[in-house]
Amino acid sequence: MRLTSGFLSHVFARGDSAHLPVLYSILEDLAQLAILADEESAKDGHIVEHLQRAMQHFQSAFASCMGDRNPDRLRSKKAGALHVVNVQMRVFFRADQTALIAKLFETVDHRLRHDSSNMAATAADIVTYRYWYARDCLLNDRYVDARYWLEFVLEELPVKGAQGDEAQMRMRRNVEWVLRSLIPLRIAAGTLPTNDLLASSPRLEALYAPVVASLIKTDLQTFDAHLANPDVERHLTNVCLLDLVRSIRWLVVRRVVKKAWLVAGAGTRLRLDHCQMALSVSQGSEVGGVETEAAVSTLIAMGLMTGYVSTHHQLVVLAKANTFPKVQDQLYTTFELWDVWNKTLRT
Score class of each variant (00 low, 15 high):
5 S>N: 13
8 L>N: 01
12 F>L: 12
13 A>W: 05
15 G>S: 12
15 G>T: 07
16 D>S: 09
16 D>Y: 07
27 L>M: 13
27 L>D: 01
29 D>S: 14
32 Q>H: 05
34 A>T: 01
35 I>T: 08
37 A>F: 02
41 S>G: 03
41 S>D: 09
41 S>W: 03
42 A>S: 13
46 H>I: 05
51 L>W: 02
52 Q>N: 10
57 H>I: 00
74 L>F: 08
75 R>S: 13
77 K>L: 01
78 K>L: 06
81 A>G: 10
83 H>Q: 15
84 V>Y: 03
84 V>K: 03
85 V>Q: 06
86 N>H: 04
87 V>W: 07
89 M>V: 03
94 R>Q: 10
95 A>H: 06
99 A>V: 08
100 L>R: 11
102 A>Y: 05
105 F>N: 03
105 F>M: 00
109 D>N: 09
114 H>S: 08
116 S>W: 00
117 S>P: 01
123 A>G: 08
124 A>M: 12
137 C>E: 03
137 C>N: 06
140 N>M: 05
142 R>M: 09
143 Y>K: 03
145 D>K: 04
148 Y>R: 13
151 E>M: 05
155 E>G: 15
155 E>T: 14
158 P>T: 10
158 P>E: 10
161 G>R: 05
164 G>K: 00
165 D>E: 15
169 M>G: 15
169 M>W: 13
170 R>D: 15
172 R>G: 06
173 R>P: 05
173 R>F: 11
173 R>I: 09
178 V>P: 14
188 A>S: 13
188 A>M: 06
189 A>R: 08
193 P>C: 11
197 L>Q: 14
204 L>S: 05
206 A>K: 08
210 P>A: 02
213 A>W: 06
215 L>V: 02
222 T>S: 14
223 F>N: 01
227 L>Y: 04
227 L>M: 02
228 A>G: 01
231 D>Q: 12
231 D>E: 14
232 V>R: 00
233 E>S: 10
233 E>P: 10
233 E>Y: 10
234 R>A: 14
236 L>A: 01
238 N>L: 06
244 L>E: 02
245 V>I: 02
249 R>D: 07
250 W>R: 13
250 W>C: 05
251 L>V: 04
252 V>R: 00
256 V>P: 02
259 K>E: 13
260 A>E: 04
261 W>F: 04
264 A>R: 13
265 G>P: 07
266 A>T: 14
266 A>Y: 11
270 L>M: 06
271 R>A: 11
273 D>N: 14
285 S>D: 11
290 V>Q: 12
291 E>R: 12
295 A>F: 10
298 T>C: 11
301 A>M: 08
302 M>F: 11
303 G>K: 07
305 M>R: 09
309 V>T: 09
309 V>G: 12
311 T>Y: 11
315 L>I: 07
317 V>K: 11
319 A>T: 11
321 A>P: 04
323 T>C: 15
326 K>F: 12
327 V>S: 10
330 Q>E: 06
331 L>D: 03
332 Y>A: 05
336 E>A: 09
343 K>L: 10
